[in-house]
């Protein structure tokens, strides 16, 4: 019997996919989150807001899981999500995590390191999203990214 249509919201999916009690990455919920955000007209906008909030969590494991969801969705969710992540509205939230002027002095080191890694990977894989390179260059200028 086919599973009932999935009424789970993006919010409940991301909460499950980033639950600090998870012993490991919950790939089922990560995949479901990616599919759900692609199928809703405003999915990418809502997904980026939810992800930004989770990535800024002081709980390292919750933030690291959120970054894994972000990375997975950037590989699988296509253009609409790319362009939403490629906006300063979202990139600024990542900048706040790594910049000492904002959350950088309190954010876990592993989270900051992974934020910079994923941002760098997008400057290579998504050159058309020019704002990502702008943000990355600015972090370099401020010495947040080591040369």
């Amino acid at each position: 019997m086919a599973a009932p249509p999935d009424e789970e919201s993006l919010e409940s999916r991301i909460n499950k996919a980033t639950n600090p009690l998870n012993r490991e990455i919950d790939w089922d919920n990560v995949k479901a989150f990616c599919e759900l955000l692609s199928n809703e007209p405003e999915g990418p906008q809502l997904a980026t807001r939810l992800l930004a909030h989770k990535i800024q969590s002081p709980q390292e494991w919750e933030a690291m899981q959120a970054l894994t969801v972000l990375e997975t969705c950037m590989k699988n969710c296509g253009k609409r999500f790319h362009s939403e992540v490629g906006k300063f509205r979202f990139l600024n939230e990542l900048i706040k995590v790594v910049s000492p002027k904002y959350l950088g002095s309190r954010a876990p080191e592993a989270v900051k390191k992974k934020v910079l890694e994923v941002m760098y990977s997008w400057t290579v894989s998504l050159p058309e999203e020019t704002k990502i390179s702008d943000a990355y260059q600015m972090l370099k200028k401020q010495g947040i990214v080591k040369q």
């Binding site: 007209p41 300063f88 600024n92 904002y102 704002k131």
Partner: peptide, 15 residues
């Protein structure tokens, strides 16, 4: 067909 709402508004880069 689904309404594709596409909003290009954005903020400035945080310095």
């Amino acid at each position: 067909s689904k309404i594709q709402y596409h909003d290009d508004s954005d903020e400035d880069l945080l310095e």
